[in-house]
């Protein structure tokens, strides 16, 4: 129900309501990014074979939408690091990308063991990776720092035994603006 706007009587509201369809017609080319879109991918814990596929899908999606290459590169880095963290340290989870009018939102959740000390985990070089992971070149403790460096905002929510959520926001640069 539309509330009565100040200064308008009940009747004066009618034309406003009738005018609504005109404002919700398809967005013009310029506002292509206004159209909201969200895609989610299942990430399986310990599945090194498929690790990275969701991020490659997201990269291709963003390319097909003509986003700035350096923005896509940053999202790709963050996607990969978050997928690998779920595969190596987390439980089963979901990686999602949301395209909003002025930002991209990359979010990963998993139902694994959680992070006991988030500040420590965010420090470059800190890692609980095991010897097998290290032999494969993982465990530099650079994943979360890479995610922080390459996103505009990062939020990490986790508790021991209660899963992990990492949400990253990337502001979409104005046309002609590079970073």
């Amino acid at each position: 129900m539309l509330a009565t706007l100040p200064g308008l009587t009940e009747n004066d509201n009618l034309p406003l309501i009738n005018a609504r369809p005109a404002r919700i017609t398809a967005p013009s080319e310029n506002f292509k990014h206004m159209s909201q879109l969200k895609k989610s991918f299942h990430i399986k814990s310990r599945d090194f074979i498929r690790a990275g596929e969701a991020s490659i899908n997201i990269q291709n999606l963003l390319k097909s939408m003509d986003f700035d290459p350096s923005l896509i590169r940053r999202v790709a880095i963050c996607g990969y690091e978050s997928e690998m963290n779920v595969v190596m340290h987390g439980g089963d989870g979901t990686l999602s990308i949301e395209v909003d009018s002025d930002r991209l939102i990359l979010e990963i959740t998993d139902d694994g063991p959680g992070i006991e000390d988030i500040d420590l985990a965010m420090q470059a070089g800190y890692s609980t990776a095991n010897d097998d992971h290290r032999e494969m070149g993982f465990g530099a403790g650079m994943g979360l720092p890479n995610m922080k460096k390459n996103s505009d905002r990062i939020q990490v929510d986790s508790k021991k035994d209660d899963g992990t959520l990492v949400r990253m926001i990337f502001f979409i640069p104005e046309k002609g603006e590079t970073d």
Binding site: Y80, E81, M84, F138, A140, N146
Partner: peptide, 8 residues
């Protein structure tokens, strides 16, 4: 040879 270092 460190994947996160290369990724970054």
């Amino acid at each position: 040879d460190l994947l996160s270092e290369v990724m970054g």
